[in-house]
Design a protein around this nucleic acid. Sequence first.
DNA 1: CCTGGAGTATACGGACCGGTGAGCTTACCA
DNA 2: TGGTAAGCTCACCGGTCCGTATACTCCAGG
Lengths: 198, 198
Amino acid sequence: MTDDSVATTGRTVPPLTPAGRRVLDAASGLFYREGIHAVGVDAIAAAAGVTKKTLYACFGSKDRLVAAYLAERDDRWRDWLTSWVREHAPAPAERLPATLDALAHWLDREAPRGCAFVNALAELPSPDHPGHAVVVAQKRWMLDYFTGLAADAGHPDPDKAAAGFMLLHEGVSTVAGTGVLPDAAGHAHRMAAGLLTA
Amino acid sequence: MTDDSVATTGRTVPPLTPAGRRVLDAASGLFYREGIHAVGVDAIAAAAGVTKKTLYACFGSKDRLVAAYLAERDDRWRDWLTSWVREHAPAPAERLPATLDALAHWLDREAPRGCAFVNALAELPSPDHPGHAVVVAQKRWMLDYFTGLAADAGHPDPDKAAAGFMLLHEGVSTVAGTGVLPDAAGHAHRMAAGLLTA
DNA sequence: CCTGGAGTATACGGACCGGTGAGCTTACCA
DNA sequence: TGGTAAGCTCACCGGTCCGTATACTCCAGG
């Protein structure tokens, strides 16, 4: 097994068979839109055009399929965020605010129901669930990423700036899921400006 | 029916029988800790020491029991928040920041898994579910409450200030559910200071 | 006294849950 | 040519889901 694909998360993912690929794609859409507990394995298999037998041959259990869904979504998000920042914010000082622009576009295109990891955590209270650790790791990576960007920008207290952006990111994605505050990202952007000039 | 109890939400709640009271208490704890879909009506009835027959006589369906859980929790939160602010922040200018202190204590005492309404929304994507409207109303009330406090404090742009506090509140409660950022409320407090002096 | 609401106990129904067993076809590759 | 892996069909498992039915007890109020 030397040809496992390695993503930015550092996780190694065994390559999927074509049927396994369809299962994960179908599961990702259903889990995000309907919720994890609300979607049964029969519905996933049917949507993927695959038998349950194949689903279990590829993933072993529903819990592990959930973890795979979260891990792959985390991969996609990290790739999207980091490459957005690389392309749209060449100067170190512009990078932290640019993460909010990336988030706004992501929410618009890929996450109308808010943060998939927060939503998943709402359904997975037990730390024993294989998906739980994926969610916590995602949030921890976010915080570390912000800390690095703040340090690159020469911020006097990178930890404090990172904490502030963490709060803004979570606030924006949560509020976006409710629809009560249009242009949440815009408000966050203005608050970030105050945070960085102070 | 002239003696319905009326809470700060303006909702009228038909008075519950003793058994109905036990059902709602049991359901509230289980729904919040385990998640809505993860808890069955049999478990709720057993925890309340009540027959399913009684549960259905009092609430009609699981969906309506979920809505009652959310509505009552919203009542409790509004009472807690408004009375906290009344007692701890007599001066209008102190009231908006004081909401973050109230939130910190509430999370510590009543909401270790973060915002119950956000968690519920993660499990109730359909706007047809009776609980969906309760969640959206809760968020809208929060925004209106902040707007009022900002206006009382003489803030030049109350809507902008309210949006900022909305983001901070959602950010703090979401982050609290993940455990990756200790003292999230403290960080929010410092950001709020910058927001209000600017 | 007796009626009716609140509650009990037990059981059932049909659907769906996650998960498995046995055996078949297809296609690639040595 | 033959082996092997991927995937398929069909059937099945025990358990749980929400919701209902029948029948009995208790107790306060008119």
